[in-house]
Design a binder for these strands. Sequence first.
RNA 1: GCCCGGAUGGCGGAAUUGGUAGACGCAAGGGACUUAAAAUCCCUCGAACUUGUUCGUGCCGGUUCGACCCCGGCUCCGGGCACCA
Length: 806
Amino acid sequence: MAKYDPTVVEAKWRDKWAQDKTDQVDLAGAKRPFYNLMMFPYPSAEGLHVGNLFAFVGSDIQGRYHRLLGYDVFEPMGFDAFGMHSENFALKNNRHPAEMVPKNIERFRETQLKKVGLMIDWSHQVDTTSPEYYHWTQWMFVTLFKNGLAYRKTGPVNWCPSCKTVLAAEQVIDGECERCATLVTKREMAQWYFKTTAFAQELLDELDNLDWSERTKVAQRNWIGRSYGAEVTFEALGGPQFNIFTTRPDTLFGATYMVFSPEHPLLKSLVTAEQAEAVAAYRQEVARLTEMDRQAENREKTGVFTGAYAINPVNQKQIPIWVADYVLMGYGTGAIMAVPGHDERDFEFAQKFGLPIIEVVSDGQASHPLTQAYAGDGPLVNSGPFNGLLAKSEGQEAIVAFLAEKNLAKKTVNYRLRDWCVSRQRYWGPPIPIIYCEKCGPVPVAEKDLPVKLPKLDDYRPDGSGLSPLARSTQFHQTTCPSCGGPAERETDVSDNFLCSAWYFYRYPSTRFDDRPFDPELTKKWLPVDLYVGGNEHAVLHLLYSRWLCRALRSCGFLEFAEPYKKFVAHGMIVRDGSKMSKSRGNIINPDAYISEFGADAFRMYLMFMGAYLEGGDFRDGGVKAMKGFLDRLANAVLPEGASLEQTPSQDPETLFWLHSSIKAVGADIARFSYNTAIARLMELVNHITKNQVHNQIVSETLTILLAPFAPHLAEELWEGLGQRESVFKAAWPSYDEATTQSTQVEYVIQINGKVRGKLDLAKGLTQEELDPLVMDSPVIQKWLAGKTVVRKIFVADKLVNIVVK
RNA sequence: GCCCGGAUGGCGGAAUUGGUAGACGCAAGGGACUUAAAAUCCCUCGAACUUGUUCGUGCCGGUUCGACCCCGGCUCCGGGCACCA
């Protein structure tokens, strides 16, 4: 087969696959289930971008490869269509998301996704905006609420003034809104939270046992942020007791003042009359700051004395209590003991406000004024009975034990992770299924009344009032209490879009059930997901939320496993000509144009060839065309024009060597996601076949199967051309003979003092004794040995001889 | 600041355990075919010079018979965390 027309060939097989249901799997009857999941896209109006395709194709190769290995592969696709991305886009274009989103989905699916040659079982789609789906998203909420894992609380929240909604901590990136990069501010609001912190320890510990990309695990570990320390009880002079958290209880004797966070509830009762005004002013000033301002790098410390004193439990010293915004209410207890001698921040603060600095851990130098905080280890000094103990290894234990006896300290663990704020004051999301009754309080909507349908509001703009646009619909928010039947009001916020995506993969196998979110039998059979491929940008968002939800559902008795994904692989990012793709640079790749000109197969192969899949790649314009050229050569190597294929197996040792080592290498490369080298192997095999005019049925069939995961349309066409009736994906991945992959001849490298001086083509498996005379007699080596003394000879079997001379 | 990655020809990138650096491809140059071009095929392609030798995997040093690979110290780039006590 010479040059082929990808438009014709690909359309033919697309239709045939649809007609024959080639990509569908018998979920109930599958014997070797393999759940191959890719991160579902949000159907933006711009259409599928090349990053989506890069991700999908790399995942699809795994799906197709596993199918050829004999697995029943389930590779579903869906649309993550609720959320601010869709809504903001609709707002910008003055349209209604309920009209725009279905059109985008249609376009994504029909004119883009289906043309890429993904092995998707379209009979099990998920659309998070359909009531059949968000029925169960709401059920998740109700279930979590009933099991004490969802609660409502008033407190400071992250507010995006542009999106006019609150955000979860995970959605605030460098103080800015993840969606629109507007500076996030703090606002006091009543919001719904999920208790993510309830499983912080488990989520962290289990990372060690997961088969995940290491960098994803590192990101999660950082985010969960566990630190060991102690909670110590101080007493305010003539006032209440309060707790502080510290990771350095060994430095307790060095505490020269205390700091309360401006949001600390105890502050009001501590402040003295003289300082009340100053503290109130300071608190107001802090409240006005954006998150960005407050956490800005190198920002000078600010703070105000409260007038109150605390008693240090180790030595009964009275130390002043300050309020400062470098102490955060959301971490630990919102109050700290300040040890300026051994903490940089406290040191800076003490310097600025002239507070005393005491050295309690010796840095090994004789007595000297401290010019910076010393955070190293060393013997305790100025610490009464504890002097001389090694601070970190001995002092911590001893001082905590001493206080614990009086019930004034205990060892604790603190996490950076916060509970997940799930309320959103927006329109385009699943309404939170809660009803507020004056008598009964917050009551979940009865399961029989789910879903709470999102009403069609013509004016769905967020108004910044702190209430969702749904609050403007009396018809929506006025209802009756499910518990007592009295008049009640609905919650009008919708839930965070990340709730929709935290459970979608449970739904795929069970899309045909409308009386349960997921079927226990099918879930048992297909979950957890065997392989999940996606972008690392979700390392602490989607991946953490879905891990948490899995544990939550298990603790509620709905799942039998704790981790949703057996294996997660983070693919790399694509750049173009060495720089990031962006609209402003105008260097966005339009996949459709390449696909219509060179075909999906050539485009898939180029995407996989341009770099390491796990690292990402650099897209160069000529690449797709060159890849089409390779596919033409490959087609002609499989079905040579003007020649017929010999039907008996090839006897040529060189051809057999190439064939078997290609099978071995391509399989191994796919297994380790090294697609670029797998394709390079295919090129080498094609080069061998072409150069040596190998016209052989078995060679052609093998090459076709090796190609199939990468270029499925062309593989089908060639397979048919080879006289096969069934899909190539019903064939089996070829096996290879290990002995044949080992050639009998080996090139021995001869080094003199580690430098290559010659090569000898000899039989494999020679012993040092056999090889030695051959090496020593070879003229090239003789030349180098002349006038030298051989000191030593290093022999590496089947590889090299290194002669060390003087 | 702390924690992860990474740096290899003109370019994208290979190198499975410390053992031939530059696989595979792109671009470029030369040639064949052609009236010509396109397409295709063949050859060359890290650098330097004395043409068979020296140098060469971000920089400096070390270990080793031998280092892109291991160790110590840096520089730059990408990512994560960051006033988290």
